[in-house]
Amino acid sequence: MSDVERELRALADTIVVPEPPDVRAAVRTRIEADSPTTRAIRPPRPQWVAAILAALLAIGLAASPQARAAVAEVFRFAGVDVRWGSDADDAPVVPETPLPGADPTDLAGAREQAGFEIAVPSLLGEPDRVVVADDARVVSLLYNRAQHPVRLDEFDGSLEPVFAKTVAVTGVFAPVDGERGWWLPGPHTVHYVDRDGVVREETARLATSTLIWESGGVSYRLEADVSKAEAVRIAESLVR
């Protein structure tokens, strides 16, 4: 151990820290007030996801609110939890804030850090900014188009939720290269679900329409104020 390290440890011993509080009773009261629905989302079994997806597909994906409620409150697809509800209307409009541990970098830097291949839509070309977040779990390509800013989030894997969205409207099926895709029209709130499964409120932001799809074990989320057809075209132009 170096001198400075030794000195730091010695310094720590001289720091006065207040007595820790006894939070047992308060914590207990709060966790006992929890209803099962307010607990963190349990990762559903793949076959459960498949069953819900099949059910949604069977009812044409444009089911009435009653039918939707009967199917599920949370629908998971390509690493995104979609919650039906009116919360989207009440959600405060907050400016985009960085994801946890967000670090600006460039394409080469992101490719070095991420554990998966990063794809770039050839329709849009090189992004204006690249951000890696949460230990390169999410890589975001940002395009500062004056009229239509575009954000493409790419993340490894598909079953563990990375984003939670609250939408007031139902989504529609939007195949990308023949693979399953999901289109969520209009604004909705987005929360980031960190590695502990804790939904991080502070990263909530108001998103525009979003296309979600999965390809080759990587999940994609394209946020842009464009039509569904345009979003699918952008999605299909991805080059790894």
Binding site: P18, P20, P21, V23, A26, V27, R30, I31, D34, T38, R39, A40, I41, R42, P43, D196, G197, V198
Partner: peptide, 20 residues
């Protein structure tokens, strides 16, 4: 805010336990 932070963290951790 230290006491609130500790209390909130324990409550959040409890809710996140299914993912532990």
């Amino acid at each position: 805010d230290v006491e609130d932070v500790v209390q909130d963290a324990f409550v959040k951790a409890y809710r996140a336990l299914p993912r532990f």
